[in-house]
Amino acid sequence: MTIDQRPPTAEEGPEEPTNRPTPMHLFRNWLKRRYAKRLIWLTLIISAGWIAATFLAVYFMNMSGGPASAIMSEIELTMYVLAWVCAPLMGVTLAIALYSMIGGWGRVKGDKQPDQDGPGIRNNSIATIGWAVWVSALAAFLVVWGLVELANIQAFANGSVAANQQPNSQQSITVNVTGQQWVWTFAYPDQNKVTTDVLVVPINTPIYFNVTSKDVVHSFWVVEMGVKIDANPGAITNTGFTATKLGTFNIRCAELCGLHHAYMETQVKVVTQDEYNSWVRENGGVRLS
């Protein structure tokens, strides 16, 4: 928003210097301009389009059956929040550029250099300071939201739950994940070392993962759970999730690991507790604890 930039017409005459206009009055004056109204409309339309696009984005994310864990739900919520708070900024930016491009303020075609210069506006402290404050506030909000959500999903990965819910007293399961060119191996040390290449986990039970690699860097990505951690040779990394949805979901390798990286994928089967127990028994495991 800028201070009055239109010359007073002859009828209006020079403004009274002592008659100090309020900011609201200036704003209303500004709104009377043709371009002001159009810019506001454009901003609204573009922002709305962007918000609609975020629904499409999350629709894409859920096409293979997610969200299957609280972590994934938080990620999708965060997508919405980030997109929505950025929407006005995106709208304003594209609206001004678009309006200028389609000649809202006029334009000059052909190869003859324009003979008339634009207004010599070199600065506008309301615009610059306002913009800086707005963007900084936005960034601060994004940071705070991000930090809180990060703490949240880390807590979920550790099997605990958010502060406003009941603490989770269920038994947890530890799985040792080994990446190796180009297979995943899952070992269940608590269940008498059951080993499998398709992950099987019971629903609503916290699963912890210790992840390592026998050769190069892989990345353990349980797609619909929203969980990803690199499998590094010579180091153990940790993550975890609690499945909230029965079904079969995808595990992929998300770090280029050599020739057959593309085929380094497997599945996670989320089953009921009973099914899980019988699966463990069938595989020669004992529920130790």
Binding site: N176, P189, N210, T212, S213, K214, P233, G234, A235, I236
Partner: peptide
């Protein structure tokens, strides 16, 4: 206390 390469320490 570094982990052994390719294994999970108990």
């Amino acid at each position: 206390n570094s982990p052994d390469f390719g294994n999970f320490q108990e």
